[in-house]
Design a protein around this nucleic acid. Structure first.
Lengths: 347, 347
DNA sequence: CTGTTAGCGCGTTCAG
DNA sequence: CTGAACGCGCTAACAG
């Protein structure tokens, strides 16, 4: 960056003090004569004056940027959340500093640190790492935090939660009501509360009807962009190899469900005629494939908006404003689930 | 944020000058005795010292954040680019300030302004707006800019470009070589160089073979998350209503192609048996559907990385380092294109 | 090796 | 209504 004009430069040109210039250009309510106001504005415009927020923020100790930490932006689930956050931030003149943690606790902590150093006013975080000690320390040091998706054991943290258990339950009930009895659940490692929640919902709905649970859990923890999809494929393969084919497969998220359907097709099975598939998340792409994916909707965009609003509230009203909200699931009925046995004899 | 400890606080506790503390804590190469170093570090740790980068940046006039402006993060094409940018930024200790312009020129300019005010060191921008005067002004004022996807008429701007024309040509040639003669092109408004490029590639390949072009261009410019998809659907509908069904449809991007396939299915037509479909972009989801989408790959992630690297180069070596790169397309052959006429009589 | 001083760009007392 | 003086947290020049 080049050296830019400062309020002092303008003050010299306008032959006034820099204090007056500051009062005018920062739209202060402080009384300044109309003529001086006009004169100063004119000169400022002419010379493309751009305020240096660093100076202002250093002086007033109030930055206008909030940090957002999520696992990865290329996952539509998260990008949609970010969009919600940014929307609200923008309306309130805040900027968004974005970081992808890639599910890496170390990276997450590193980002937390730089954000703190850069004086972000608060943080919206979808943390995955189990170890929250670092985060908790920052909170104790005064950082305002809204946690998405994952409970954090600390006071003064706002939480945006989602009733995963209920979602899992609803989805399973729907399959049961459609007449399915052999319903399998395929999932990424059950190492997070969210995934555990869905799983528990599935189990309780099955138990309730005296049905046998059929579960496939992947063990790999390696992270990559298409991890979920591959997971869906391999878990489905394992399911089909067992010989006793389920009539419905419920996946822990939509991406995994796409993998399930892809593998079914590859094995010559049709969805939903041969096997019904239920997803979880409600990302846009579910609508775009054939069959359109029946799934449980999480209001991601709204979650982002809500999280940002909660953060802004904490910022303006102090930490007592910390609160918790539990969002509710909705069933998105589309085309990937039908009644079972429509083609039972076809294989 | 609470009042945090400063180097002065530490200086007082360690009974040294704040200059010494600064030299130690900022890992300066300046000579300080080992004992003092240790003592100061100890105290700093004990009191959770966090440097205030605002002070540092104000003094040294070097911020470590770069701005990224893209139309919308929920489009995988862009989120993938951002991921590439962030990856490189992180490796070089830079932060990323993210903004969604939503294709809104006004918003874009507003973001440009706040970024400037917040002293970002440079900007990576995928600008859509035709009016680049504001951007050009900032460049003239010394801002370092890398433009993605869209040419900017100014000196000292680095450009990451993609050979859209060639991509469009390659895709069309591939369809022709598969034996197609009635190849339709469906596209969002041809109001950007990128879209025009693909279109021209299509036209030139068709002309070359003496084939008749069949084009459907949407006129709506309203923006929404599923705009492209809906576009694909409605343009396909219009194409089918004409009675003279093409054997292949080439879409201006993958999302539109998804809409094409969805509409075909809805009308009882199969892809690729009845109609082949070719996309453009190569987003991950193309692999996840059945049939997997045949498409032209843009190396989005690499484009992001490249853009960020070019920016860093400009920052370190001065504006002369401004450069331009034209990336090349690759054909991603998957399952949505086959030879025509495989089921010509079935309808 | 260490301390003193000055100032980055800005806002804010406190006098006038 | 206006200006002089000070300081936010930090680094850099200059002494010692």
């Amino acid at each position: 960056m080049k050296k830019s004009v400062t309020i002092h430069d303008i003050a010299r040109m306008a032959e006034v003090s820099s204090a007056t210039v500051s009062r005018v250009l920062s739209n202060s309510s402080y009384p300044v004569s109309a003529e001086l106001r006009a004169k100063i504005w004119k000169i400022a415009k002419e010379h493309n004056y751009i305020p240096n927020m660093l100076g202002k923020q250093l002086k007033t100790k109030t930055s206008t940027t909030i940090g957002v930490i999520i696992p990865t932006i290329t996952n539509m689930y998260y990008s949609s959340i970010i969009l919600g956050v940014e929307e609200i931030a923008r309306r309130n003149q805040y900027q968004v500093l974005l970081c992808n943690s890639f599910q890496d606790p170390e990276l997450e902590n590193k980002y937390l640190k730089t954000m703190f150093e850069n004086q972000v006013r608060g943080i919206v975080i979808a943390s995955i790492s189990g170890d929250k000690t670092q985060l908790t320390r920052y909170i104790e040091m005064g950082m305002n935090v809204v946690a998405l998706d994952q409970k954090i054991d600390a006071e003064n943290v706002s939480q945006v939660d989602f009733d995963y258990r209920k979602g899992g339950y609803m989805a399973t009930r729907y399959l049961i009501e459609k007449g399915h009895k052999k319903i399998a659940y395929v999932t990424a490692p059950l190492d997070r509360p969210s995934r555990k929640g869905i799983f528990e919902g599935y189990v309780s709905a099955m138990k309730e009807e005296g049905l046998e649970t059929i579960v496939r859990e992947s063990d790999k923890k390696v992270y990559s962009g298409t991890y979920e999809f591959e997971n869906g494929k391999s878990l489905t393969r394992s399911l089909l190899e067992s010989g006793d084919r389920p009539t419905a497969i419920f996946a822990c998220n939509d991406m995994t469900a796409f993998g399930v359907i892809s593998e079914l097709n590859q094995q010559g099975l049709r969805c939903p005629q041969d096997v019904s598939v239920m997803g979880f998340d409600g990302i846009e792409f579910g609508r775009m494939m054939t069959p359109a994916l029946t799934t449980v909707q999480q209001p991601t965009y709204e979650m982002g908006q809500l999280a940002c609003n909660m953060l802004l509230e904490m910022l303006s009203e102090g930490r007592k404003a910390a609160s918790a909200v539990m969002l509710q699931p909705t069933l998105l009925v589309r085309d990937s689930v039908s009644e079972p046995g429509m083609r039972t004899q076809s294989n």
